[in-house]
Amino acid sequence: MKLLAVIADLLREAAARRWFLALAIALTALLLLLLTSLRLEVVDGALAATRLFGEPLFHEIRPADVALRPVFQIASQVVFWGGLLFGVIACADFGPTLLSPGRIEFLTALPVRRWELLLGTFLGVLLLAVGGAVYAAGGLVLVLGGKTGVWTGWPLLSALLAALSFGAVYAGMLAVALWVRSAALSAATGMVLVVLGLLATHRRTMMAAMDEGLGRMLFGGLTALVPPLGRMADVAGALASSAPLAPGSIARLLLGTLAFTAALLVVAGYRFERKDF
């Protein structure tokens, strides 16, 4: 219950911020625009014609769900990377705010354990990420499903994957904020993790091109630990477009990302428990 109270507190704080209000308005406006301006003609299950703002769009006539695959795939990539970057910027100061003088003393004086405060903050941010991603992907599914009759749940799963990836990045941001109470440094950490995640995606290729030495070893060590975000984005895109996936590998990728997140949260917890306020 106490954990839920911390999560609710963070969500209240998020609701008061213009960043999230702007995101909600932008997503809603985009979905409404699609709803009102997109005309899709479906003949016997095939998407035969598309009009956007009354202008015909040239495309092939294919089964509607096949024709919509690239749309869901692109939307999934936008949600993944857009959500990741937006989340890094918009959530950077949740940690520092939690630790701000006056507030942290007040919170630690309450009958709430420190780990509950930390986990509540993390889960609250994760819930925001899930909410945003599912709202965008779900809205798109509803709009396109209503117009074509093609109903699919995969884009929602893809959105959850995007939120999970952001969770890994945010765990690092939170851990750093517990050492240095700075929103800027927290955001920079998030960006560094995103870049490392991209490098980790192409780790093998890049290492093959590097000369033996300390730099290569350092690069190999760092990128072995960070979840390969590019691969996660590809999996999210493949899920959204119903493309074939290797199930065993996905499970390892997801579990690996969860283990990385948990490791950073443990580091954050270690620092939080030992810190004097």
């Binding site: 691969r231 999996v235 996936l245 590998s249 690996g256």
Partner: peptide, 9 residues
């Protein structure tokens, strides 16, 4: 866990 082959089948 992240030391995996390609995730896309």
């Amino acid at each position: 866990l992240l030391w995996t082959p390609d995730t896309l089948a």
